[in-house]
Amino acid sequence: MTDLAEIEMIRDSARAFVPPGGDLVRIRGLRFGEAGFDPAIYRQMAEMGWLMLRLPEEEGGLGLGMRAYCALAAVLGAGLVPEPLIHANLAVRLLGAGVGDAVLAGTRIVLPAWQAGFDGLDLAAGVTGAAGGLSGEKRFVYQAAGADAFLVTGAEGGWLVEAGAEGVSLECEGTQDGGHFGSLRLAGVSAERIDLIDPAAALDEAALATSAYLLGVAETAFEMTLDYLRVRKQFDKPIGSFQSLQHRATDLKMQLALLRAGVDMAAGALDAGVDDARRSALVSQVKVRAADTAMLVAREAVQMHGAIGFTDEHDVGLFVRKAMTLANQFGSAAFHRRRFAAMQPYAAA
């Protein structure tokens, strides 16, 4: 199959789960629930091969590239899908086929517990695996309550930790989108150290997929807003006829065009093969625009809807909350600007 055909195929299969306009009744129903997502739907998604997208064919995976992965992520974002596919894919990416069939089949959910600080992409901090077992804390583990096990990362590699194991405790806090973050505390947990596969690349890929997801979120919020500008009337005219709103809507379209081009460009470059420094610079470039654009579209969407945009009853708010939840995941815009500048330093001529 050609690359393009593969991308089309994955987009179509994604749309089966995320009908145009999204299944927002399902999304609302899952908000603020215990797992924050639906394990049965997660399994169905796994059956589509979505957890083995990036796994090489010789290891039994689909061997797809970042372009296909980003196409999928954008559709998931458009439908605000709460199943933590990007996070689960990160765990698979770090472990390879060794992760086990149950994980790839979606019957066993393994989520990465990689972050300890507030921001950035440091997966080493927080936990140490001394002789007495694994100890420390990982935070901001997205949708942690739904996990059977965690892939805990440290400076020397990773550890698979069962959620119910001795010495493991999990405390969850809600996130704006109706999901949650878990704080995972480990006190002398016995677990075997595993080598992680190219962690820096894996995190960059997760950051890029998150950018594509944010693109889907922002594009849909933008479409909803355009629809509203066409139908809402004040002063006997559609509000979309007012020039100040037309100009601002156009500005949003510009940002979305830049973001989409950036996602495509970076995904294509990663698929073609680039060195580590170039990869990270490209991903940072895209994640900056993704975070900033999603947040910009979110606030303009509220503003252009007027008071109804500030209600929880109106669906546009679901997109605002998703943007707020994901904008800083896998590095905020501020972090990625710093990283880009460090890699491609500004030098006076």
């Binding site: 806090e173 809600g174 704006q176 973050f181 707020m324 939840t325």
Partner: peptide, 13 residues
């Protein structure tokens, strides 16, 4: 605040 808040910016409470 959202820009510097890192992961905390996503929290509901």
């Amino acid at each position: 605040m959202m820009a510097i808040g890192g992961a905390t910016a996503a929290l509901l409470e």
